[in-house]
Write a protein that binds this DNA or RNA. Structure first.
Lengths: 220, 220
DNA sequence: AAATAAATTTAGACAAATCTAAAACACAAC
DNA sequence: GTTGTGTTTTAGATTTGTCTAAATTTATTT
């Protein structure tokens, strides 16, 4: 409907992501997510409140309004479609798509995005397994499970990776783990919460930090 | 090498285009091209001079330095590759590509552009017939002729359109004129410099303004 | 060569987005 | 219920890009 600056869009997107887990988002959380200062966050939150994109009472944290959520889903749609395009058509590797998509997502032409969607064949998930909102902002919520909660010896398929930093993606590439990879948890160690998983007859050791970022669906 | 703001890039691009015809570009020319005020132009010219992208002595007009030209060609490469992508892959019509490419051109990832170029099959000209600079900024200069200078009854092929406004492109679409269209000038009228051209057994009347914007190559 | 007109530059102001440092607030601990 | 700590907000400054209005320079005309 309206157009927002690159900066506004980045704040909106960050609030959207943080409120998934936290419900209410705080100033410090947002500042560290966006690598900016708390004072800057407050300034922007006032602005977005004026534009009715979020609910915010001083000192009480914030969450997106209905309108704010719609805007966020639009940005996420653009981001994930570009990621898909970069990986699928331009053959970017898994860990490179995110950074470039961060820029492309701010080019906001509805027609561009809808035609891109069509050109790509209406993909449902991006290269990290995250669902892509459709034209109306509807997003698929699949019941995925973190491998820390997976029972032993149960076959499952990687469908999502939590973190998007190039560090984690580099590590996963090294261990041959990607979206669609079939795996089984063979052992869990209580000492450090690390685990051993099996992929194609090969065994790998996974740290707790890494495990927390790998999500799977059961084989269907 | 370095990164420039969207605003800086727009000024650089505009100077590049204006100096093709004029040699030396003036403050007012640039201001009207960019729909801004002369004072803003002066401010930006000082900045670009400091960055050694252009030659400029107060009151003497300006032209791009060697470095400035290289930067300009990079921007033009991005713009025209995106235009080609939009028209060829996303099926945008001729008159829609320019506006969207204006935004995409500012996403400056060398890898993105080089991979896009490869994906598109290294096209040589954009949908308006303008040549696309290669990775090294080299640009094809073809000896094209404006139809105002075309002898009567000589077969020629449209290869370029001067103006890029959606108005002119809409008009051309209506008359079935596009890149690759074969035409012949049948008559010129001295009164208003309008002319009659023939396309596929059909005759069309072309105003002086329009004729000045249509460029052709002779049939080969 | 002086006067006038046009183009260009300067000076000062403003909006957006950011920052630092100081003040205000919330809340847990005593 | 006062105190203290950490969080959040305010106040004021900065940078980028823009503008208006005034001053300056260049060009034109007589």
């Amino acid at each position: 409907m309206f157009n927002y600056s690159t900066s506004e869009e980045n704040y909106i997107k960050a609030v959207f992501h943080l409120q998934q887990s936290d419900g209410m988002v705080t100033t410090n959380e947002l500042a560290s997510e966006l690598k900016t200062k708390p004072a800057s966050v407050t300034d922007m939150m006032k602005k977005l409140k004026n534009k009715k994109l979020l609910h915010y009472q001083p000192y009480q944290g914030f969450r997106l309004s209905h309108e704010g959520n719609k805007v966020a889903l639009g940005i996420i749609r653009r981001h994930r479609l570009w990621e898909y395009f970069l990986a699928e058509k331009l053959k970017f590797s898994w860990d490179e798509v995110h950074a470039v998509a961060e820029h492309l997502e701010h080019v906001s032409s509805k027609k561009l995005i809808d035609k891109l969607d069509e050109f790509l064949g209406f993909p449902r998930v991006d290269p990290h397994g995250d669902p892509i909102p459709d034209v109306n902002g509807k997003i698929e919520t699949s019941k995925q499970v973190c491998i820390t909660a997976l029972p032993l010896n149960k076959q499952a398929v990687v469908c999502h990776v939590g973190d998007q930093s190039s560090e984690i993606l580099e590590l996963l590439k090294h261990k041959n783990i990607g979206i669609g990879t079939k795996l089984e948890v063979k052992k869990k160690f209580d000492f450090d919460n690390s685990m051993e998983i099996k992929i194609k007859q090969q065994f790998y050791n996974i740290s707790e930090q890494l495990a927390k970022n790998i999500f799977v669906k059961y084989e269907s």
